[in-house]
């Protein structure tokens, strides 16, 4: 049996990213191009007919869905790259870059934005949609909107998260950090005066154990404001019950501030992947309804 050392990388590896720039710009560019083509070719949808435009729409959606398959199934990628390894160095390297998930994401967004054109042609000749068609249209619009929202989130959220204090990159680390803060706060209050303990229980502990409203967090994310600032201001306004315990009170405020920032961090982490669940759910629903639509068309109208 050969040892691992005998097997080496054969495809010229590129360890640095391709960096295609802002995804949102690509999406907007493709959408604008689709609109431009539609305007430039008036009545083309009618000439093309429902069947052809429907097939084109379906093909564009299928193309966009390939990204999801590629993302979850590395097997195909490995096979493609093994074939690429037999090709000349330059070709293999280009194929490697083209097969990167980063590139696939770009194809996904471009196909997703470009689908507007065949979809527009497809719905143009319709004379009043049936309930199924109306639902399909709504789902397609929601899919495009959620995709656009996703592009914006993926383009801008990472940087906005990085520049904020108390950054954790995994939800489980946020949980651990919050627990650690709670333990620190509880230890800090041990053996303190009764008024301070009562103030802690009334004002600080709810912050340490509670969660912040998602809407407020979303506003903070969009506006770039620090959600901990109003909480800290409120606690400072309360003031320490005794002057000689001001240091402890300030420390508790600092802990509460960090807790709110970690809550915000957790919200951002959830947002960065949460939109995708909605996007996928809409895509599945759209797929199911499309299957009904196609089956219905074939059954009732035939080819």
């Amino acid at each position: 049996m050969p040892d691992d050392a005998a097997v080496s990388l054969r495809v010229p590896a590129s360890h640095t990213p391709a960096h295609y720039g802002r995804l949102t710009l690509w999406a907007v560019g493709c959408a604008v191009l689709a609109v431009f083509v539609h305007i430039a070719l008036p009545g083309y949808g009618l000439r093309l007919g429902s069947y052809r435009s429907g097939i084109a729409t379906l093909a564009a959606f299928a193309l966009a869905a390939c990204y999801s398959v590629r993302k979850r199934w590395m097997w195909l990628s490995v096979r493609v790259m093994r074939i690429a390894a037999r090709m000349p160095h330059r070709v293999a390297h280009r194929l490697l870059i083209a097969d990167r998930l980063e590139s696939w994401r770009l194809y996904h967004v471009m196909a997703g934005a470009a689908v507007i054109l065949p979809l527009w042609w497809h719905v143009e000749p319709g004379a009043g949609p049936s309930p199924l068609e109306a639902a399909l249209g709504a789902l397609a619009a929601m899919l495009l909107l959620s995709g656009a929202a996703g592009s914006i989130i993926q383009d801008f959220l990472p940087h906005s998260m990085r520049v904020r204090p108390d950054l954790e990159v995994r939800p489980e680390d946020v949980d651990a950090a919050i627990h650690d803060l709670y333990v620190q706060a509880e230890e800090a209050i041990l053996g303190r005066s009764e008024p301070l303990v009562q103030a802690y229980l009334r004002h600080v502990r709810p912050v340490m154990l509670g969660t912040r409203p998602p809407l407020r967090m979303l506003i903070a994310t969009i506006s770039g404001a620090d959600p901990a600032a109003p909480v800290a201001a409120r606690l400072r306004a309360q003031g320490a019950p005794a002057a000689d315990e001001a240091d402890i009170w300030n420390r508790l405020i600092t802990l509460a501030e960090r807790k709110v920032r970690l809550d915000h961090n957790r919200f951002d982490l959830a947002l960065s992947v949460g939109w995708m669940r909605i996007h996928i759910a809409i895509a599945i629903a759209l797929g199911v309804l499309t299957a009904f639509h196609v089956a219905g068309v074939l059954y009732f109208a035939g080819l």
Partner: peptide, 9 residues
């Protein structure tokens, strides 16, 4: 290869 944003290098 599987980083969708090219963040991993």
């Amino acid at each position: 290869h599987s980083c969708p944003t090219g963040a991993a290098i």
